[in-house]
Amino acid sequence: MNALELRNVRKRFKKRRGVWVDALDDISLTIRRGEVVGILGPNGSGKSTLVRVISTLVIPDSGEVHVFGVDAVAHPKVVQRNMNRVSVEASFFKKLSALENLLYGAKLYGVTDREARERIREILEHIGFDYKRAQEPMEHLSRGMQQKVALARALLTSPMLMLLDEPTTGLDPRSKREVQAFIRRIRERHDASILLCTHDMREAEELCDRVGIMVDGRILALDEPRALKERYAADGRIPDLEEVFMAATGYSVEEAAAEEE
């Protein structure tokens, strides 16, 4: 059974009177169990809408979304139990400590204080987060540390599908490497399937089994990184993923990151 299956999903939003934008234009995508699939695309390409549709925060206009065979539109509560998400902004109660935020997040998924406390210590130690700092308000922690707590919160509920929406955007190089290492560990040790949306070509190449390129609400290509490169090879030269991205989208990496949502 596939972890995630989207069939011909469409979503339009009204920008202003009479102006509509196709955020998702006939998207079909499959993630196999235990697979990591990356989506590369400029801001405004529809990556976040894609994640919101899968995480049941946006109802698609048409098409089907199945998470482990369950219709996510018809039965959102069933799929929510088995899914968690880390987004570019670590959404926490800023005045509460990391521990308080984690305990709260765990309870929403039916995990008791006692169960959560044991796992929180274990998970935080694994990601190199000093447990003593878990008592500090989130607003006192760096972005990198906040993002680690966000990953810990997602892992705390043992999700079978993880949605990572630009989890390393805006992090300093060291925090970025640590978060990426943590994602790698999740992949190796937990039975989780992952959808990773990112701007970072190297991140996509290193962490993902398959990579998709998304522009204007459409997935232009989706394949293993090596196969994608071969597809865009020219004059016998194999391009890197960045060149593949530019060839497919017409955007440079910098433009992709700078495009307004």
């Binding site: 799929v79 088995n82 309870k107 039916g110 995990v111």
Partner: peptide, 21 residues
């Protein structure tokens, strides 16, 4: 689908969540 979390009855997970809020 196999639930990732322990198989608690629904009412119990909802009660835990009430306490969470």
């Amino acid at each position: 689908m196999q639930p990732a979390l322990s198989r608690r009855p629904r009412w119990m997970t909802e009660l835990i969540a009430v306490w969470g809020y």
